[in-house]
């Protein structure tokens, strides 16, 4: 038992805070759902009381950080901010590109982003990895298992690009009077 003290280096402080936040969010979001009674629960009953339970647990967990020194395992450690940003970003990049730009571009962009977190950039290795993974994605998933990917961009996107080129070319052509 340590003295009463604010310890931001205690994991429990932050865990409690997260629980607390989630609990408050849950109660807030449930406010519009009919509560009902214990014997005839409405859709709001479970989430609301779960929210209160979450708040209680959060308070208890968080409170503990004010009274005890953390053990080594309970001490907060440094966050890996670069991978934390890059990994979800590369997943999101794949998701955003796959439907419009097709498999090749989505996989390439994803790999580039994911690899940005690796020091000592190795281009040959990256290209090798890209080829192998693309081959698996294409032959196993798209052809073999029938996941509906476009290999390259969607036809309508291809048309859009065509229109765009046309649009860009038009004033040039008009200026030169052709």
């Amino acid at each position: 038992m340590g003295a009463f003290k604010f310890r931001s280096y205690h994991q429990d402080f932050w865990a409690g805070l997260m629980f607390l936040g989630l609990g408050i969010l849950a109660v807030y979001l449930s406010k519009d759902y009919p509560l009902g009674r214990a014997m005839r629960m409405g859709p709001g009953y479970f989430p609301t009381y779960l929210g209160y339970l979450m708040i209680t647990v959060g308070a208890i967990v968080g409170a503990r950080s004010f009274f005890t020194e953390p053990t080594d395992e309970e001490r907060t450690t440094k966050w890996a901010l670069v991978p934390l940003a890059l990994m979800p970003a590369s997943v999101a990049m794949f998701a955003i590109l796959i439907d419009t730009m097709g498999l090749v571009i989505a996989v390439a962009s994803m790999l580039l982003l994911a690899n940005a977190s690796v020091k000592n950039f190795r281009p040959v290795e990256l290209i090798g990895n890209f080829i192998v993974l693309l081959a698996i994605a294409y032959f196993v998933f798209q052809r073999g298992l029938g996941v509906p990917f476009h290999t390259f961009w969607e036809e309508s996107f291809g048309k859009a690009v065509g229109e765009l080129l046309h649009l860009i070319a038009t004033p040039v052509r008009l200026m030169f009077g052709s």
Partner: peptide, 11 residues
């Protein structure tokens, strides 16, 4: 390995 796992999770 990790980009491969990442890609498989995406797919």
């Amino acid at each position: 390995l990790f980009p491969a796992i990442l890609l498989f999770m995406c797919i």
